[in-house]
């Protein structure tokens, strides 16, 4: 039962990832990513990471994906999303990806790491403790980073606003 559900979720994940990789339509690719992200959130639950799974759903599915979809809508990049350049084309990409995948499998098999039977626990409180004790500095740095990002994104997009404001002023001046 448990394994069955896991396999289903894993299959959905792989499917979503493959759709992302191979879909011709960028919207389909984004939706495939959405599928994969949701499925990965399910995998987190298998790994006793309830808080991370919820975060994944909230931030990725609720935030990032909406952002990406808006980005797709704001830019008219519907068709022909694959590169025409043969060097950038599917064959070398496949080759590299295959090499990378084989290397990954090789590493997994030869890692020789000791694994234990994982235990299921409630994690939220402990994560909170970790964030505010051991990882307080990265935590704060991340908040600073986010502030900077907000400001930066605002500045970057402000130009357009300025242009939009100036244009009618000139027209009024002519009148």
């Amino acid at each position: 039962m448990k394994d069955g559900i896991f396999l289903c979720i894993a299959a959905v994940t792989v499917f979503g990832a493959l759709v992302t990789a191979f879909s011709r339509s960028i919207i389909n690719a984004a939706l495939g990513l959405l599928l994969a992200l949701v499925a990965i959130a399910g995998l987190y639950i298998f790994l006793s990471a309830d808080f991370v799974a919820v975060s994944q759903i909230l931030i990725y599915v609720g935030g990032v994906m909406v952002l990406l979809l808006f980005g797709i809508m704001l830019t008219s990049g519907g068709d022909n999303i694959f590169s025409n350049n043969p060097i950038m084309g599917a064959v070398p990409a496949t080759l590299i990806t295959t090499i990378f995948g084989l290397l990954g499998i090789y590493v997994v098999n030869t890692s020789g790491l000791t694994f234990y039977q994982g235990a299921y626990r409630a994690t939220t409180r402990d994560i909170g403790h970790f964030l505010l004790r051991e990882y307080i500095l990265p935590f704060e740095l991340v908040s600073v980073l986010i502030v900077v990002l907000i400001v930066g994104a605002g500045v970057m997009l402000r130009k357009e606003l300025v242009i939009v404001r100036q244009a009618p002023q000139k027209k009024e001046g002519k009148k």
Binding site: A10, T13, V14, A17, L18, T20, A21, F22, I26, A29, A30, A36, I40, L43, L68, G71, I72, T75, G77, N80, I81, F82, S83, N84, M88, G89, A90, P92, A93, T94, I96, T97, T98, F100, G101, G104, I105, V108
Partner: peptide, 20 residues
């Protein structure tokens, strides 16, 4: 599974022309 997803990501990155 992570390797498969990662490889799918790499492939996507290498082949896409659209920045998104």
């Amino acid at each position: 599974l992570a390797i498969i997803i990662f490889c799918a990501g790499i492939f996507t990155v290498l082949t896409r022309k659209n920045i998104i």
